[in-house]
């Protein structure tokens, strides 16, 4: 086991990382950062964290649906990635590797939550209407109707199977292309499309119920 050698700890880590990042404006490739992390450079790993933390958070949020849990699980994924960084091939995309850890953590978390019969009790919905959608149009009836449609779709998304929801979220809310989804999830593009179809069919049924 490799023990941490660079110093950031507690509040010091924040300034340490930000100073370091600001001092080196040239963006290094993931492969370089991974190699340096493997050589024991904690700052290099910190740079990878800074680079992918938002993506990891939103990836987890789409899978577990709770902001607090998504924050916790995404941080845990980075912590595990750090522990197992020696197993990573620097020439493979870092985020694809991290995502494998993240989705496993998230699926386990969702399974445990289901086994413990704990419902998702988010204080506020994690999917919201975009500002452009909320403020467009002056017709209040139309706005209400669209808001209701979003509510129904949101509920339908939460009732999807984990695998269908994962693909839908990666497509709709992270804006990935089919090829990128296939690489991240480790499935053929045809399966991406069929899962998307199944997910959207259910969302369409939820919208139809209304009328």
């Amino acid at each position: 086991m490799r023990v941490l050698t660079a110093q950031p700890a507690g509040a010091g880590a924040e300034s340490f990382v930000s100073e370091h990042l600001m001092a080196e404006p040239v963006e290094r490739s993931d492969a370089v950062l991974v190699r340096r992390s493997q050589a024991g450079d904690t700052r290099a790993f910190g740079e990878l964290v800074e680079r992918y933390m938002r993506r990891a958070y939103y990836g987890a949020l789409g899978l577990v649906g709770s902001p607090d849990d998504a924050m916790d699980l995404s941080q845990e994924a980075f912590a595990r990635a750090f522990r197992f960084r020696d197993k990573l091939d620097p020439d493979r995309p870092f985020y694809a590797w991290l995502y494998q850890i993240l989705r496993r953590l998230c699926f386990n978390f969702v399974r445990d939550r289901r086994n413990n019969r704990r419902k998702l009790t988010a204080a506020a919905p994690y999917l919201v209407g975009l500002a452009s959608a909320r403020h467009s149009g002056a017709n209040p009836d139309k706005a209400l109707e669209r808001s209701e449609a979003r509510r129904r779709v949101r509920a339908a998304i939460e009732s999807l199977s984990d695998r269908d929801r994962e693909v839908l979220v990666l497509k709709e809310f992270e804006g990935l292309r089919y090829r990128e989804i296939a690489e991240l999830v480790g499935i053929p593009i045809g399966t991406v499309m069929s899962r998307l179809y199944e997910a959207r069919r259910r969302l369409a049924a939820a919208l139809e119920e209304r009328s």
Binding site: V128, R146, L168, L203, L207
Partner: peptide
């Protein structure tokens, strides 16, 4: 469906 999901995003 696509239209509705297009109006949604992560908080």
């Amino acid at each position: 469906v696509k239209e509705v999901t297009g109006e949604m995003g992560f908080r």
